[in-house]
Amino acid sequence: MTAGHIENQIRTLRFLQGEMTQAELGQRIGVTRQTIAAIEAGKYSPSLEAAFRIAEVFGKKLDEVFKWRR
């Protein structure tokens, strides 16, 4: 298994959405603001469903929000 990690653009996308708060994003996809903070900081990898929901909120494709880096 190759080592790697998931990067995300959530912080940037929140800014581009008029500084959408973590709480607001969390509310829209059904998780707490602390979970959004953990995802944003790369400390928690969301489920595929939550990842798709986040991408949908920003009107982006999944790989525009989350990227796998080696």
């Binding site: 059904g30 998780v31 707490t32 979970t35 928690y44």
Partner: peptide, 11 residues
């Protein structure tokens, strides 16, 4: 408010 929220996937 936090007490009312159901457990999310991380919880």
């Amino acid at each position: 408010d936090d007490a009312r929220l159901p457990a999310d996937e991380r919880d």
